[in-house]
Design a binder for these strands. Structure first.
Lengths: 214, 214
DNA sequence: CACTTCAGATGACACCGTCAACTGTATGCT
DNA sequence: AGCATACAGTTGACGGTGTCATCTGAAGTG
């Protein structure tokens, strides 16, 4: 039969991936409380100590998930932005709804994305050099910034370079607020007579220059 | 000397208050991780089991803090709103900055305010009837709604009843997003060439009818 | 006075993150 | 080839945590 022919590095990489996937699944299912190093290891087919060969601590594991997610979202916005068939107003709406959609579909993951950048103080000595420099939070921060740059480009395409930054900040923070209040249950659509989608439409309309296609 | 003359109910109420204060202090100092039932009890002068005489579980304790905080914020907005010396545009700005200020000054408390309404499933049997009905989350939700109603009145005073709800939702979610991104460190004022205060000003200007005082 | 109620104390349990020490195997060097 | 090393993974252990059942003693009540 086909020999598996896995090198040790490949096996380790596979375990690391399995750990990340298991943690992400647990996060989706039961929130951060449900993500336990032991259970993550078990779902990845290893025992409780093994995850510490790949991540300095539990926080680094979660931060790695945040980094990957920011990277994915940034790529999605980039794909939207470089699709020439899409009008820019629609592109902007899609980008905003993309973020809000993560908040709706994966609320726990969304909250992880906007966690305070973690302190790098908790690294134990064994892995301080093993897992490289404490670039863990840096990776997440970098990926988040890449998303913001992509988003900024979307805004600039619609509202011009001059207004892009201030409008971008307004749109991004607003979208984040919409997502946050929706997932925390504080955005009662009956009380406010509006929906997240309507709010996004209003925002985009506010910053769209006159004469642009809607 | 003056006899303390404390009835049992008074003593219990004092303990409850001490527990809430201790928990709030720990939350401010070290975030939710630092809020441990044991330490809360110790700071309130009781042992680890005592808090369970006043709160069904740790979550109920935190939810009670959220309820009290929402209540305080609602009162502050009410005071702003019913101050006749203040123009309505300033009132609105102050209300928005009030929320954002909590996020800046007490980030952990702020995040507690926007936590998903807790599940009432975890109540143990002893206190299920003891601590009354599981009205704990209901109190927090009610206080949060009172804040929203006060805020809605502020918006209505400036933008009129007709637009109040849609504008209110936009302003409230945006302010929440500004606070959230600022406290998570994702709002780089250098990158975006703007500040939370400027964003608030822009928002208020956007919904202010022409001819109103700024 | 006896009796009840209940805030608080205490022992116990399961679970958690984390580390030190150990084991076995794949890798690299001679 | 054979040997030494690196290192992914295991295991035992420790301190800490939320929570409960049980107990205790003092404040309230008839």
């Amino acid at each position: 039969m086909l020999d598996a022919m896995v090198t040790r590095a490949e096996s380790a990489a596979a375990t690391r991936r399995a750990l990340l996937d298991a943690a992400a699944e647990l996060l989706d299912l039961g929130g951060p409380e449900a993500v336990t190093v032991r259970e993550v290891g078990a779902r990845a087919g290893v025992t409780r100590g093994a995850p510490y060969r790949h991540f300095a601590d539990k926080d680094s594991l979660l931060t790695a998930i945040a980094a990957e997610t920011w990277d994915r979202i940034a790529n999605q916005v980039h794909a939207l932005r470089t699709n020439p068939a899409l009008p820019t107003a629609d592109t902007l709406r899609s980008a905003l709804r993309l973020l809000i959609g993560v908040g709706r579909d994966q609320p726990h993951l969304y909250q992880l994305l906007f966690k305070r950048p973690v302190r790098a103080q908790g690294l134990n000595q064994v892995h301080r050099q093993l897992c490289g420099p404490p670039a863990d939070p840096a990776a997440a921060v970098h990926a988040a910034e890449r998303f913001q740059d992509e988003f900024l480009a979307v805004v600039a395409a619609l509202a011009g370079e001059r207004n892009a930054r201030q409008y971008g900040a307004l749109l991004l923070t607003s979208a984040h607020g919409i997502a946050g209040m929706e997932l925390s249950g504080h955005l009662d659509t009956d009380k406010w007579h509006t929906t997240p989608d309507e709010l996004v439409d209003t925002l985009v309309r506010m910053i769209t220059p006159a004469g642009q296609p809607t």
